[in-house]
Nucleic acid binder design. Structure first.
Lengths: 182, 182
DNA sequence: GTCAGACCTGACCGATCGGACAGTTATTGT
DNA sequence: ACAATAACTGTCCGATCGGTCAGGTCTGAC
């Protein structure tokens, strides 16, 4: 075969990132990766000590950048800190989109589950309702933001009473959609 | 043993929901569930035809309620639709918190990964920066919402140019935090 | 008492997983 | 030409997974 001086290593990382992002980490086997790359499973373990080492190498740059953002924010305080945190996090999440997708994959995997068969379509209609009357990009993006915001926040275990949580979620979501009703 | 007329079935569902929510669906084996319940693995498959059937039964109520919300929204349009969609979705996500957690579990599982070791702490500081100056509950909730909103939206593949996406994400996040700077 | 049926289990199965390892092929320096 | 080393692979392994099955145990009806 003899690829030019081991582009193979890079190909493995590429394929792994794609597969992890579409099937999840646990849902992807070494065999799967090898098949996409077109090499043997043993080759993967020639370049990487383990499957987890592949994941580690894929996620490390994002982790380091996040640390850098953290350091950059250390000196700032007050409103500027909030704005810097927001723009920094947005930029980071966008630059490492595929990596973010790896972390969030199994959601999409499970929403395809029979019990939740209609969910994607329903969510799409929900988003449409939220975006009612809003221009193209803004409506789409903000509706998606609300879905993510509410889901993740409910999945987290914030030390906030349910009533307050509900009220803040609704108010926050309406602000996100730019539909404040004071 | 002889539990009172098979409370076992319910116990299995309880334990499975807990485990799925903390280790993820794929990260939980039938053996794990059986161990928590205190019965044999074969008992699980006496009451449920498969592991997936357990997941199905757990997620079905949430799926049905989501469908009901969808139906309820079908008649409404315009601003009221957006508000109804928001409150409906918030209430749903809160009522089925553990189920939502099941869908989102593997994120938290992976953020514990060595390559992302410091991530939870960094995210906590990011959220603190976002909440700067905001009162207790509101700051916590809105910061969590922004993290979720940005992550999920980036993980989705919205048909929106990167520049627009970035701009809307930042504007939307600042609105969520109630820190608009027009 | 005993029979039927619901309840529950230990033991086993095939498939698949991540990984180990000896060996083969290709490349390079001399 | 020829070692030495890097690149790569076929094959095997133990562990674990979801799932099957024959059989044991308990309970209530008669």
């Amino acid at each position: 075969m003899a690829r030019p001086a081991s582009a193979l290593r890079g190909h493995i990382l590429d394929a792994a990132l794609d597969l992890f992002a579409t099937r999840g980490y646990k849902g992807t086997s070494l065999h799967d990766i090898a098949q996409v790359v077109g090499c043997s499973k043993a080759s993967l373990l020639y370049y990487f000590v383990s499957k987890e080492a592949i994941l580690t190498e894929l996620l490390t740059p994002a982790g380091e950048e996040l640390g850098a953002l953290d350091a950059r924010l250390a000196g700032v305080e007050g409103i500027p800190a909030a704005e810097a945190a927001v723009t920094g996090f947005v930029d980071l999440a966008m630059r490492f989109r595929r990596e973010v997708k790896v972390l969030f994959q199994d959601i999409l995997g499970l929403t395809g589950h029979p019990a939740l068969g209609a969910v994607p379509a329903v969510i799409a209609r929900l988003m449409a309702a939220m975006a009612e009357g809003s221009a193209g990009a803004k409506g789409l993006v903000t509706a998606s933001m609300v879905i993510g915001a509410v889901s993740v926040t409910c999945a987290s275990d914030l030390p906030v009473p349910d009533e307050d949580l509900r009220a803040e979620l609704i108010r926050g979501a309406l602000r996100t959609l730019d539909r404040e009703t004071p």
